[in-house]
């Protein structure tokens, strides 16, 4: 069985994130890391491998599309236990939106070949559109089972549990398919020292767009199907009144505030 997990390199959420002059997200000037939400995807891919009848026959490939430093995201996945890595790196990709990114990811998944399972995180911690998995499924013409909190596989059968707005659903599908997992699916493992050493010897391919048969003019900022016209930094919220509760004064002040705003 072949599993591809899509991992994204994102600016550290605790750092300062901002827009560059061309209105794209600054992914260079800020320290980055493997999106924490994609660690859950790597974890689930590894668990599926470990639980398989013959784990040796399951190959987990970590795939990223992004700038030079994005290779760190793949490395982290290799350290956690993925078998090989693929980094699609091409200057033309800069500024790509979800539509273009999903195209490159789809071509890369096809390049890896005979993939049974594509595993994604629930959303990027930076862009956070949560649409790449669905777009990838559309492009690969595969079923999607997304936002899984519990994942079970048996042969080529996949069952997941997910919380929808009004119910908890169990969804079933047959591989090949695209799966996305939530942060409820279980803590991701830390790379062990052994894992870190082993990762150095694992194959890591860097592919360009031409390796994938994607034309430079199909991706990037200039062909984005949407255009940012204006970005405005929100003025920081000005702090309002803060009172300290003493012998019940807090409750009264709170009630007075709510009443003054007509919430009562």
């Amino acid at each position: 069985m072949n599993i591809v997990v899509c991992v994204k390199y994102v600016p550290d959420a605790t750092g300062d994130r901002h827009f560059e002059d061309d209105k794209t997200v600054d992914r260079v000037g800020v320290d980055g890391l493997l999106s924490e939400l994609d660690e859950y995807a790597v974890e689930q891919a590894l668990q599926i491998k470990e639980k398989a009848d013959d784990p040796e026959s399951v190959e987990v490939t970590a795939l990223t599309v992004g700038p030079e430093q994005a290779v760190d995201a793949v490395r982290k996945a290799l350290q956690m236990g993925a078998d090989k890595g693929v980094h699609v790196l091409d200057d033309a990709i800069a500024g790509s939106d979800a539509i273009a990114t999903s195209l490159v990811l789809a071509k890369a998944v096809e390049k890896v070949g005979s993939t049974d399972l594509v595993v994604c995180g629930m959303s990027s911690t930076d862009g956070s559109m949560s649409v790449v998995p669905a777009m990838l499924a559309e492009r690969l013409e595969l079923p999607q089972v997304t936002l899984a909190s519990v994942i079970e596989t048996q042969g080529d059968q996949v069952r997941i549990k997910r919380d929808s707005d009004s119910a908890t659903d169990v969804i079933g599908a047959t591989m090949p398919l695209v799966l996305s997992v939530t942060d409820q699916s279980g803590e991701a493992r830390y790379p062990s020292f052994k894992g870190i050493m082993a990762a150095k010897k694992k194959p890591l391919d860097t592919l360009s767009l031409s390796d994938l048969g994607v034309e430079a003019d199909q991706v990037g900022l200039s062909v984005a199907w949407t255009e940012v016209q204006e970005t405005t930094e929100r003025p920081p919220r000005t702090q309002g009144e803060i009172v300290t509760d003493e012998d019940g004064s807090g409750a009264k002040a709170l009630t007075d505030f709510l009443a003054s705003k007509k919430f009562i």
Binding site: R237, G240, E241, A253
Partner: peptide, 8 residues
């Protein structure tokens, strides 16, 4: 930092 009104 965000609040319009806060109770400590």
């Amino acid at each position: 930092e965000l609040v319009d009104f806060g109770v400590v």
